[in-house]
Design a protein around this nucleic acid. Structure first.
Lengths: 187, 187, 187, 187
DNA sequence: TATGAATGAGCATTCATTCAT
DNA sequence: AATGAATGAATGCTCATTCAT
């Protein structure tokens, strides 16, 4: 009877540790040793849960996405509010979303020259786009292909603000980001 | 018998080589050895021109920015066209601009946890924002602080499209990117 | 409620697994994990049967020797035939003997710089030599010390052929090896 | 003007270091670090001269072969003496030949499950066989295909003695090995 | 200025081994 | 007896950097 370990939980602990490290000190600092130490485990244990560093990075990105996704699930009173909440989820207005963005940037940098990672990145974007498009439809803003185009425009605007906010937080306190989002939705 | 070498020209050759490598195979492939080889030089030579790898990366980013900046200089008949040309310069519609974006993404990933790089990134953004704001004013779209806000919105929209185009080029051929830009300016 | 397990049988299963692995993929592939997996057990189980890897290797070698020895036991009509059968046992003419040779070679490589293993190797040779010498005497070929010298010569010739056959099986099909053995015994 | 280094000489120094280590402490002790230390260099330097460990091992084996080969070149008064000298070269009668044999055994163990190494091993054997066959012809012992068969028998006998001598040096002092060789040639 | 040999710290990864269950 | 999670040392290898020429 082996020691009881919740494998999935452990994997989450580890990808969390990796995400924290990436957000705090950059992808260069996210070595296997450092991630293991951050999670309070040994190097060797890491490889019980992830075959290699690439897999760890990919899972860290996908875990970060799942986090973002589960946040969307919060109920909002109406379709318009749900759309707003979804887009707000893409703005680095708190440490959690900020962390997600740092992971995404690190992942994008790694995805250059690595087709599998690039595909993961692209698919995540497309999934998010469908999700936003559906909410655009429900909010009665646009339908069918038009909804997708509107979703793209919304996401582009939000992502653009996010990137500026990420590297110039002084110019972009949370309230300014949210104001920009409201402006966007009003137009 | 000192051989004549144009130091500045050599630095450009080297940062170009680094940019090509980053765009082609990711920042992980941009080792000192590989950059030197790509430029047709020896490893040791690199250190005559750049104190260390961080400096090379910083200079590569700044050289990439300069390239983008010099492209803006192209005359355009009127202020509105100049604005359009400037924003178009931020879209990955050809290999050159695509390369610039890959360098920027790589740089952002490295800037996490490195204050000096983060500052460089932020300053570059601010400089670009002032530039666009000036053109917004000249085009008679808005004035003063309003012009800066409009510039931010334009840049955000364009950057957002750029990021999507970077990792999903199938969905974003050059003409679609330019159409999105035209939509943006029309509104 | 102690589960019934035939310890000796399990050890044989494990050394068999190790031998198969060594023959198939080299000693480098014969890690504890791989041996356990090949035997259909877990890593931890291995240590119930062998204190450490060295012991596993030593036992694998000795089990391989026992196998060779038990084959000698096959009855042969007369002393000369018995001698022939014994020497034939040292030729890699089938998968089984081939496997034994691979294990022996791996063991020899490991025995360099490990006195205990080297002693085991030497003792195995001496034991084989006495055995052959006894059959040389019984076959009336030579007596006493002369029988030992003849045995040595026979073994040397057979081992030399075996090594060539091991790495150049095209040049040494089974029948050629047996023909060489017959030539040897005729002389 | 780079520092002057004789690359070939350095490679020989390194393969010599590897051979010494393998003979002294077994292939397990011949790690990159240990080989570099034995040669008085750093780990990193080793990879200037050998792409990886496999290449180092292959070159060590081939350098060991070349050593054996160059020893054959010693002139001997007549064809029979030359043959004897060649076969004597395959007996571990001194530290040098002993070292060559240890390298060969280590290499054989590694060649299991590595086709390229196995081919190198086979080719080395075939080359040696042709060489001996030529001397058998010159010594007037046999001709054509018969010479090859005789060569094989000679090599097998010598190799067999060598293996016994390697792991039971007490039973096989140099003079006994040479006596066995003389017996072989007399017959 | 240019070279490339040399360095050694640091990396991801593998492995034998231990141990709680 | 059996498991497999956990360990951490060790391995092969890469890399930025230094330096003699």
């Amino acid at each position: 009877m082996p020691r009881f370990v919740d494998v999935e939980e452990r994997r989450v602990e580890l990808t969390d540790a990796a995400a924290r490290l990436i957000a705090r000190a950059g992808i260069g600092a996210a070595t296997m040793r450092e991630v293991a130490a951050e999670a309070g485990l040994s190097t060797g244990s890491l490889t019980h849960y992830f075959a290699d560093k690439r897999e760890l990075l990919l899972c860290t990105f996908q875990a970060s996405l799942s986090g973002r996704r589960s946040q969307r699930a919060e109920r909002a009173p109406d379709a318009a509010s749900q759309l707003r909440a979804t887009l707000e989820g893409a703005l680095p207005v708190d440490d959690d979303r900020r962390r997600h963005w740092m992971v995404t940037v690190a992942f994008c940098a790694q995805a250059a020259g690595d087709d599998e990672l690039a595909d993961a990145q692209r698919d995540a974007y497309r999934e998010f786009r469908s999700h936003v498009a559906r909410q655009v439809e429900r909010a009665g803003i646009a339908d069918g292909d038009r909804a997708v185009v509107v979703a793209e425009r919304f996401i582009a605007a939000v992502d653009g603000v996010a990137i500026q906010a990420l590297f110039d937080p002084e110019s972009w306190p949370a309230e300014r980001q949210l104001a920009a989002l409201d402006d966007l939705l009003r137009a």
